[in-house]
Design a protein around this nucleic acid. Structure first.
Length: 546
RNA sequence: GCCUCCGUAGCUCAAUUGGCAGAGCAGCUGACUCUUAAUCAGCGGGUUCUCGGUUCGAGUCCGAGCGGAGGCACCA
């Protein structure tokens, strides 16, 4: 959009009427100021490179009580002497930038509150202490403008630590009407659609993204310390495999190729095992064409790990160590910034999550699928007669025609999962083989698979498996799975022959793990919605056109 | 895909049985050298999500649509 020029307002009546209407508009008022800055003050309101900036937290930390007192004494002395020859100011000087979030004009004093990613800091300007053009700019600033302020770190008479600014530059004039300064921006729809406003209006939103970054960084370091190699595998695949989920589809023009966005990196990571990389992990996006709720976003970040000559128990130790360390670090971070909702000892943190207080102390809980089932319904999961009766009793219509073990799982999800203590990280081990076709059966009891799932706060955080590496069995299971799929599933399921070929080349036995990174971030930052921990969660376009 | 609730000024929210669409903040003009949601005086700001219907009269009631929140379903 082009800037109206000063001559616009003198043209024909229709144009003048429009301009008058614009004058009542919040945006128009800001354009007016933009013009003022350019034409009256001769400023370039969209700035340029500035060196030597420190963030606002650093600036605040620069404040020196003794220097402040010395300066006060100097001032008093000068007043007494009637001597206004300036002495050397003992206060440390800083140069910082930030977004104006408050603007108070008291006549010959102007107070600004600046915000950056480290917090807020007041900038004070006195007409007497700064250049007239600086002061004129200070009076014209709006909530939302991006400025650079420089001057000595001092304190106001009321005790507020501030920059007593004698240098002030505008580097970006904000033309958008700002959110309300006290209630802020709370409408979730606007918050997520206009996240750039949310982030500066709600410090908690920025904190969450900073925490997310640190958590993922720590995950990476943890994996690297254990000699895992980070890899990246295709997100666009001609066959989306590695999970049972609906993929998104897309199209490659030059190759005239139907492609799917990946639903899991598993089959490619395993190919790397075959290729000779014994410990690999990937932290990246998966895409699943499914519903959206507090714990599901169509694109989500997962960490998947494979370790040659490991098994699901290797992965259990890895997961417990990782999550425990992340929880301790998150608790420590939050405590050090004064978060009083964090409880528990440093080595046994308790983090709030909604109504829950999640106790992260080691070891995590472990319960077998079979025991939990027995505890929930009072009979053994292998008792086919009792299972059939229970299905009827529960009115699980869709389970009635099912094979025994699928019916067991329906009952498990209905009756047993709710028994898991949501306030404790809990590994559920020993899933039935029949519902874990791609997992190696337990040699001691082939009815059970070497697989576990970890649940926290009622959310599934991730599964781990002792992977199958026999190509014949894998092929048979894949084929069986395909045969069992209904028509809807058939549409997006297919057999990855190349993956079978890779297994024929020979994959070492391995443990595999998948963790939902967004959900881990939710738990460690106390955010109840996955959208809070994703910078730009999926939103339907406002015009509804798709 | 289904159910329930919600959509009023830039933001946060009011508006009685269906009876002139309001407030605070933000904005504009002016005053003010220590503000802390600054204060004081004055001024402006609306497609009540959209379309249709009932009615003398609709923000309010009815229908459809759009968007959001919560729940369900889907979801190794």
């Amino acid at each position: 959009m082009s800037e109206p020029t000063a001559s616009d307002s003198t043209s024909e009546p229709a144009a003048r009427a429009a301009t008058e209407a614009d004058l009542r508009d919040l945006v128009a008022a800001r354009r007016q100021k933009l013009r003022f800055l350019r034409e009256e003050l001769g400023l370039q309101p969209y700035g340029c490179r500035v060196d030597g900036l420190v963030d606002l937290a650093t600036a605040r930390a620069t404040f020196d009580e003794a220097a402040h007192d010395a300066h006060e004494a100097q001032d008093a002395q000068e007043a007494e002497d009637g001597n206004d020859e300036s002495m050397v100011d003992p206060r440390p000087r800083v140069l910082s930038s930030g977004r104006v979030i408050q603007h108070r004009d008291i006549g010959k004093l102007v107070f600004l509150r600046l915000r950056d990613e480290t917090g807020d800091l007041q900038v004070s300007l006195s007409k007497k202490a700064c250049d007239p053009s600086v002061f004129r700019l200070a009076k014209k600033l709006d909530y939302g403008d991006v400025v650079v302020a420089g001057g000595p770190m001092g304190r106001t008479k009321k005790g507020e630590i501030c920059i007593w600014s004698d240098r002030l530059e505008i580097h970006s004039k904000s033309l958008a009407p700002p959110p309300e300064k006290w209630h802020g921006l709370s409408d979730p729809e606007i918050r997520f659609r206009r996240r750039y406003v949310d982030l500066h209006a709600n410090p908690a939103a920025i904190q969450t993204l900073q925490d997310r970054s640190r958590i993922i960084s720590r995950m990476r370091k943890f994996m690297e310390n254990r000699a895992y190699l980070e890899v990246e595998t295709p997100m666009m695949q001609s066959m989306a495999g590695g999970a049972a989920a609906r993929p998104f589809t897309t199209h490659h023009n030059a190759l005239d190729l139907e492609l799917s966005m990946r639903i899991a990196p598993e089959l490619y990571l395993k190919r790397l095992l075959v290729g000779g990389l014994p410990r690999v992990f990937e932290i990246n996006r998966n895409f699943r064409n499914e519903g959206v709720d507090r714990s599901h976003n169509p694109e989500f970040t997962a960490m998947e790990v494979y370790q040659a000559f490991g098994d699901c128990w290797t992965m259990l130790e890895l997961t417990e160590s990782l999550l425990y360390e992340l929880a301790c670090a998150a608790a420590s971070d939050r405590r050090s910034r004064g978060d009083e909702t964090v409880e528990g000892a440093d080595d046994a943190p308790v983090l709030p999550f909604g109504e829950l207080k999640i106790d992260w102390k080691r070891p995590f809980e472990q319960v077998t699928y079979g025991d939990l089932f027995q505890r929930a319904v009072g009979f053994d999961m292998r008792d086919e007669v009792a299972v059939r009766a229970k299905v009827k009793e529960l009115g699980l219509a869709k389970a009635e025609g099912m094979d025994h073990w699928f019916a067991v799982n329906e009952i498990f999800e209905e009756c047993a999962e709710p028994l898991i203590d949501p306030a404790r990280p809990t590994f559920v081990t020993g899933y039935p083989s029949a519902i874990s076709p791609l997992t190696r059966p337990d040699p001691a009891d082939p009815v059970l698979a070497e697989r576990w799932d970890i649940f926290i706060a009622g959310m599934e955080i991730g599964p781990a498996y002792t992977e199958l590496n026999d190509p014949e069995i894998q092929l048979a299971k894949f084929t069986e799975q395909l045969a069992g799929a209904d028509d809807e599933e058939q549409a997006f399921r297919n057999l990855d022959e190349d993956f079978i070929e890779a297994l024929r080349v020979g994959m070492p036995p391995a443990g595999g793990l998948g963790l939902g990174v967004d959900r881990i971030v939710m738990l460690l930052t106390g955010n109840l919605s996955i959208r809070e921990v994703i910078a730009f969660p999926l939103m339907r376009p406002e015009d509804g056109s798709g």
